[in-house]
Write a protein that binds this DNA or RNA. Sequence first.
DNA 1: ACAGGCTCCTGCAGGC
DNA 2: TGCCTGCAGGAGCCTG
Length: 302
Amino acid sequence: MPELPEVETIARGVNHRVRGDRIEQAWFGSHPEPFKTSPAQQAMGLEGRTILGVQRIGKHIVCDLGPADDGLPSSRSRKNKDAAGSPADGGPLDEIDSVSEAQWIVHLGMTGRLLVTTPEGPVAPHTHARLGLASGREIRFVDPRRFGRLEFRELARTEGFAGPGAEPLTIEAEEFAALFRGRKLAVKAALLNQSLLAGVGNIYADESLFRAGIRPRRRSGRLTRLELGRLRLALKEVLEHAIRLGGSSVSDYVDADGVRGFFQLEHCVYLRAGEPCRQCGAPIRRILLAGRGTHFCPNCQR
DNA sequence: ACAGGCTCCTGCAGGC
DNA sequence: TGCCTGCAGGAGCCTG
């Protein structure tokens, strides 16, 4: 299930391959669930636009798009390629100086994938969107469980996408502590709440609580300053480490090339119920909290 | 306002 | 062997 490190890995990979490219045609499937904007509106909005860049905000992948062109040959993307070597090969973002005029926002839900392939490649079952690019590449959105969402925003009409919660990688200690102050809900439930912190899901909530030595059921408002300090650092470390390893592949997660991540090999508690704690050897316990499987070491976490 | 529970959806594992 | 049941969870919605 993609959380912040997986989404970051995918966004970087997709950005690397399609930045500066132009969307020639867009195809959308018929299942209504994945679309926050209707398929027809998305197709109309996307076609003819240049992809300025792809970034992660919380668990969302945001594609910034240039102005809609007149459908003539893709002079814009060719000009970019000539001017800046090959932007799609990953030069700095500011080489493309256009201002974002629209956004395509992708949320992968639990089982969503965003892949960059060739049009000839076999189309996986549950493919809900295909964007044909001027370079000959194709972006595909595949999501068996249909918990993912696709949205198109024209920035002349609506604001640019901003995650509802704070970014756990950059949040300062004071702001972090304020998120938990006075709250009665369990600290794990608070970590999962996207309007507080954007991007933390079940795996990294469990792993960061283990690193910080805090039990998942502890009430948020009862955490000491010291514990909040440890939690903020643990969260940052665990997320950054997972990004370096390309994310966790626990179910069917793969990056933009279809390659699995490696962080699952370093999980200390997640999906390790009954197995010995890596620190003290006590068996890892599993409970249900906020409707989620929750894993912790009863000895190391207080 | 806040907290907690339910629901969507499909694939897979486990039991009989 | 094959079918059935239950479980996995992000986030929006509903209720207390």
